[in-house]
Amino acid sequence: MLVKNSIPSGSDAKIISESLWRIRLNLLQQAWKNNWQIFTEKKIGLVGLWIIGFFILLAISHPILMAYWSSQELPPEAMMGHNKSLADVYDPIRGLDLRPGKDMMPLSHPAAPSWRHPFGTDPMGRDVLSQIMYSARIEFLFGVFSALLSVFLATLVGAVSAYFGGKIDAFFMRLADLVLTLPFLPFLIFLSSLLTLDLFKLGLVLGLLGGFGGRTIVLKSQALSIKVRPYIEAAKIAGGSHWHIIFRHIIPNILPLSFFYLMLGVTSAVMSEATLSFLGLLQAPISWGLIMNFARSFGYSFYEAWWLYLIPGVTITLFCGSFYLVGRGLDTLVNPKLRKR
């Protein structure tokens, strides 16, 4: 840093700054390698990554795999007026299995898992496997969006209030207190009666609540410990602007912790979504929690249609668990004391 600031101007600066960029890249590569090694030391994070990979595959393969069901599964009624190329993919929201089974009678829905429907069908005759796969895409987008938003805000707010302190700090900390005071789930339920809560809005709300809530406090205390380090003083003396110091020195140093919270954020966002869906308060065409909600509102109990509970329930658990595992794996990065001696 000092190097860059001491160069006045002109072409020289360009050359050096490029080499600086190169140095940075090398450093980054080095750090990445080190971190990866530490990360993989504990199998826990790897297991999580594998499961996430599996879910990514599931989400991507949905349209491909679902072509198998294609038009034969869709009733002629649903085909008409449909865009034909779209109809090639089984529609997990409107699709209805009317084809006769072995005994030439139409399947009675919800049908238990079979070769035709590996995860069974729901009370409206729709294939549960395709619903699970279709929802995986949405859950990914939703979870990552909300977690990114929350961590971005928390990191920024944490760094800023740690660096400036004083009134800004007091304001954000009281705000965090306020957010922490809210009983979380009742508040979301209350919000759902207030506005038509779809996935995007829910992600936004969760992101904002997370971004100004508890995570901010933790990230701020981490940033505080960085702020008192000697090199920050050095940067200040060298004339680095406030924002330069915040973005260049403080934030990069709290990023591992942010990344850790990113993973936990996905878990908690998807969990909240699933819970709201279960209570029937979320407005979405389909989601894992809604599969269970449909079963409940049509009156199919766990005893009568176990697959409508077990399969989405286990899916949610696995999905949330995988991000949590990666988070745990990152823990050793964040906290060197946890590493093996």
Binding site: M80, P123, G280, Q283, S297
Partner: peptide, 22 residues
């Protein structure tokens, strides 16, 4: 009403939409 509140009426809405679009 949303599917979570009443799946039946939400389903009706989908089908009526389809038929009217036709």
């Amino acid at each position: 009403p949303p599917a979570g509140y009443d799946p039946m009426r939400a389903t009706w809405g989908l089908w009526i939409q389809l038929w009217l679009q036709d």
